[in-house]
């Protein structure tokens, strides 16, 4: 069986170990022979195993489900694990996602950032009056509404929208599309009894829904194709209405 010769990929990686006082950010390049179906997950593990075992990066599910491996691939935020090399040129540049704390090389501390966001926006069901009886039938929900909530629940907290956001460059406390999408998700959920006024307190400001400059880099880079544009617009309308009402 004759096969076409595989490409040799040149992978240039922005490297830096903040724990090493002698180190400074620099590019390093590695050559890897391409294989059919090759993803950046395979490439990076091959580099670690055969070229440089100190290379730091984060993969968990390697199936595009968990959101761990977001990085800049040729400058664009995306999930590395499901990026096929055949869709890219032979020279590939990788850099850590900006704005998040760097652990080393391509590994970033998204967990801490997202936890802070979730605590700030209190992304859980607020319903103090309703004690659950675990023996009773569950409360009913319209099937279409459940589907709609799930649609927004699909966010994987990968941070791509944060890295792709213009506003956050100027306002470091901006909640980002990830935050506004979460608020939209709980706003939609009848199990959460928070009033519009409470949401307004949280995001009715320039670090929330009125800070967004509508550049919509978030929508372009979201690996889960969440309807970020329409949800930000919707939340903005709702919050405007609330502010006029009061």
């Amino acid at each position: 069986m004759s096969e076409e010769k595989n490409r040799v990929l040149t992978i240039s990686i922005l490297r830096f170990d903040p724990h090493d006082s002698d180190d400074f950010p620099h590019m390093e390049s590695y050559e890897v022979e391409e294989a059919p179906g090759m993803t950046l997950f395979v490439v990076l593990n091959e580099i670690r195993e055969h070229h440089d075992n100190s290379l730091k990066f984060d993969f968990v599910c390697r199936a595009g489900i968990c959101g761990s491996c977001s990085m800049l691939v040729n400058g664009k935020p995306t999930l590395a694990c499901r990026t096929l090399t055949k869709k890219l040129d032979a020279h590939i540049t990788l850099a850590p996602l900006p704005l998040f704390e760097l652990i080393g090389d391509l590994s970033i501390y998204t967990g801490k950032w997202m936890r802070g966001l979730n605590e700030r926006l209190e992304t859980w069901i607020h319903d103090k009056s309703n004690e659950l009886n675990v023996d009773a039938l569950e409360e009913r929900m319209e099937p279409a509404l459940a589907d709609e909530i799930y649609e927004l629940d699909r966010c994987v907290e990968c941070g791509c929208c944060v890295a792709g956001c213009g506003t956050i460059q100027m306002r470091p406390d901006f909640v980002g599309a990830v935050g506004l999408n979460k608020v939209a998700r709980y706003h939609l959920d009848p199990r959460d009894k928070r009033e519009d006024e409470e949401y307004y307190e949280m995001i009715g400001n320039e670090d929330g829904v009125f800070g967004c400059m509508t550049l919509l880099g978030c929508e372009d880079v979201c690996p889960k194709d969440l309807p970020l544009q329409s949800k930000i617009a919707y939340m903005r309308r709702m919050m405007l209405k609330t502010s006029l009402k009061n």
Partner: peptide, 18 residues
Amino acid sequence: PKAIRELAHWGVPWSRVQ
């Protein structure tokens, strides 16, 4: 059944009977 109802209470958008 208790565990799934608890999760519904905590916000899981379980698919529903139409």
